[in-house]
Design a protein around this nucleic acid. Structure first.
Lengths: 226, 226
DNA sequence: TATACGGCCTTGTATATACAAGTTGGTCAC
DNA sequence: GTGACCAACTTGTATATACAAGGCCGTATA
């Protein structure tokens, strides 16, 4: 409830960037809940990157992430539409399977828990542009997705998954600048670099890093598997 | 305290995979804290992927992530040492700067907050293999790092950052399998694919996905910037 | 004018308590 | 034997309360 309220205020531009959000006590009183409940709502929105808080000062609306940001989970359907192209998709597979160790760990489930597994190809002007394999926690799955899995009639696969939040690191091929090329001892503009963006959250430390690899010198050990 | 205890039990193989961790009430009694405090410790370890919990059943030790996993935050120094190579690094820059919008958002700080900024090149047998730009929340910085920034004598840059946890998505160049190549309409073994691994956490949904792009058809809009 | 202090606000942390929701396993009646 | 039911556990959620820690600002004092 509180989260939806705050989201609406921000989405409707009523609370601009750096706007000071009502304090925990004020929100608690306004919504007739305890301060700890209001606090948890603010904390979750902070974890999502919507708010930022400082002890002693208050809670503020965080800087919005611009399109193409590497922290934002990108919605390919929106991006394709935004460029004026036609978006479509092909559902290759829908199944309810028991999660492997890595998947269950990623979703916070115990090993072997039942999860939704889907394989979808996204098309940009009828040209395949993205292959998506997704494992979804059934307890947290959107309703339309649940219907798809129960009826096995995947007519309406939606790429959009509500307000998308999460942490994502990405890769891109860039032309190398001088300083970076010197540091890595490579020819400017030659190598295909791997760039990772990483957010570490831990009770003992928190950092946000960018890592660049010369593609020909570094290779992940894992092959195409989760 | 509780977290350290559980970590130790798991690290020393006293609690194997799928071992049922003591319940919240038992931990609270053992450490003479309230149940909510014990619960918070368990929740944080669950968020880190160390534990998995199910309502009504209990809390269990999660499947360990193998080396090279794409969810584990990789420590390049360990990987180089593990291969028998010599690891070293060059510190190019150490500074305390005010965070940009994206950085502050990633770290949960307000815009313009002071953060540590470091640029380090990691070397494998004296050959540069990784360029690292890192923004660190000062309030959560390790002590050795804090000393580096205060004294400006960066003699001991440690690549290791305590037990590394976090979410990371990675990229790799792979040879394309038949089914994936058919789906994307590309020649097997030809294209350099971009592979993203993504964990979405949100109060309304949670999923773990793998996304594969043909490198020549998809390009991130953002250039080399945070 | 400049500084120090204190009051008042904020977020951060911990506690005790209560009940809801889900799983497990035993007991009892049939 | 089999099914229904219940008690005893687990985690999930919410509340009220208390105090610590840090920022802000006005006031008193030198």
């Amino acid at each position: 409830m509180i989260k939806r309220y705050i989201r609406a205020q921000i989405d409707n531009y009523l609370w601009p960037t750096n706007f000071q959000v009502p304090s925990e006590n004020q929100l608690a009183q306004k919504f007739a809940v305890s301060r700890m409940t209001a606090r948890r709502a603010l904390s979750e929105l902070t974890d999502e990157g919507l708010l930022a808080r400082t002890q002693g000062r208050g809670t503020f609306v965080a800087e919005p992430v611009t399109a193409g940001s590497l922290l934002e989970v990108r919605n390919i359907a929106d991006e394709i539409s935004a460029e004026g192209h036609s978006y479509s998709n092909r559902i290759l597979q829908l199944a309810q399977i028991s999660a492997s160790a890595k998947v269950s760990r990623a979703l916070g489930l115990i090993d072997g828990a039942a999860v939704y597994y889907s394989v979808v190809v996204h098309l940009d002007n009828a040209l395949p542009i993205q292959w998506e394999e997704r494992y979804t926690n059934p307890a947290l799955a959107p309703k339309y997705l649940e219907q798809n899995f129960s009826t096995q009639t995947p007519n309406a696969y939606l790429s959009r998954v509500a307000p998308l939040t999460g942490v994502e690191t990405t890769v891109e091929a860039i032309s190398v600048g001088i300083d970076l090329a010197q540091a890595l001892e490579i020819e400017p503009g030659s190598a295909c670099l791997q760039i990772w963006r990483r957010t570490i959250s831990h009770s003992d430390t928190a950092s946000f890093a960018r890592l660049v690899h010369p593609g020909n010198r570094y290779r992940l050990g894992a092959q195409l598997e989760f």
